[in-house]
Design a protein around this nucleic acid. Sequence first.
DNA 1: ACGACATTTCAATAGTTGTTGTAATGTTAA
DNA 2: TTAACATTACAACAACTATTGAAATGTCGT
Lengths: 129, 129
Amino acid sequence: MKRPAAIVIFASLSSGIRLDVYRMLVKAGPGGMVAGEVAAKLGLPPANLSFHLKAMTQARLLDVEQEGRFQRYRADLALMADLVGYLTEECCGGHPEVCAALPSSRRNRKAALDRIGTEVPQSNEGISR
Amino acid sequence: MKRPAAIVIFASLSSGIRLDVYRMLVKAGPGGMVAGEVAAKLGLPPANLSFHLKAMTQARLLDVEQEGRFQRYRADLALMADLVGYLTEECCGGHPEVCAALPSSRRNRKAALDRIGTEVPQSNEGISR
DNA sequence: ACGACATTTCAATAGTTGTTGTAATGTTAA
DNA sequence: TTAACATTACAACAACTATTGAAATGTCGT
């Protein structure tokens, strides 16, 4: 996953309509849905849905397949997994077990850091400008 | 995770600058970084960075803590896990093992999801279509 | 080939978002 | 209490995004 790809994926999902479409297609699974079904379920004018489907397809969030006079769309879940990988790459400077201490309470944070014996900046020294 | 929250999170990450900031802070881990450090590393005018940090904080992607005259920012990874959960809710109409099948190395997917503490289905049986 | 249907393209318009310089706020250290 | 610093708020403008109806494209069944 490269930066421009990640940006268009996030932009795709930052619209309520496209988010609804994506979740609906995730729910539909490998069977997918044709454009008209989606438009009917979401109550959208065809031109508007087409605009959003195009954006999502270009972002590779969806695959399309022509099926007679219908277009069948499917969600690409693998892409989502890659995206999460991109976000958490080099997580915690190479000590991902630190992030696993999820809740952002300072106690947990400190415990996790102590476990791997890494230094955490406690002060503001060394900041230039 | 509710729909409006998901939308603002995706909108947050759909800007290259905010994406860079988020990944930098994920990399920084629990120690976080103060605003000036981030601005210096990314070469951004302070007013512009402030605009983006505010958006990300409102989206809850970041936590801020005041530290003297600095603001220390940290990435909230737990939120990302919730977000992925929201996207894949009701995946494949309640048969998530179906979605797990698809392409793209399962090894990578598992590694990525493990990193943020989410379960991944193991089987790929029962795929229709 | 024809009429009906599914979907996309186009052009106009309305609304939202990002960037900048400059001013304001709040904190520190002397 | 000042001067210096870190950060945020404001206002103006440019650039982008979404929505719509109407027209175009392409496919089907007869």
